[in-house]
């Protein structure tokens, strides 16, 4: 995935089945953000892999004061990339099991 300066990792082991999964997001390189970033730490949250949209969660983070509006796209993309990877791994696991 592209290096956005925002890192998103799994915050629990993926059993390959649960729809809602715990993620952890933190800023690895503040220089890649357009807005001035407050060093608040890592943000833990749960994400519904089926029903939720990464950009909506990013917008909620903006509204909660973690990021500025100008960075909503980069935060959303970072979450989207991680979610895509989780889904890809799951598909690969399922297909290799068949």
């Amino acid at each position: 995935a592209e290096d956005t300066g925002v890192r998103v990792e799994l915050n629990e082991e993926d059993d390959g089945e649960k729809v809602s999964i715990a993620l952890k997001l933190w800023v690895e390189d503040p220089k890649k953000l357009k807005g001035k970033y407050k060093d608040t730490g890592a943000i833990e949250f749960t994400f519904d892999l089926v029903n939720e949209v990464p950009e909506v969660v990013a917008q909620e983070m903006v509204e909660s004061g973690f990021f500025l509006d100008c960075d909503v796209k980069v935060v959303g993309k970072s979450i989207r990339d991680r979610v895509a990877l989780i889904k890809w791994r799951r598909e690969r696991t399922v297909s290799s099991g068949n």
Partner: peptide, 27 residues
Amino acid sequence: GETAQVVHSAGRKFIVSPVPEARLKEP
């Protein structure tokens, strides 16, 4: 480390925790 909880109006919980230092610069 210290943690703080922020609940967005949509009901989502954000928990702020220390950045995992060992994982800051993974290759």
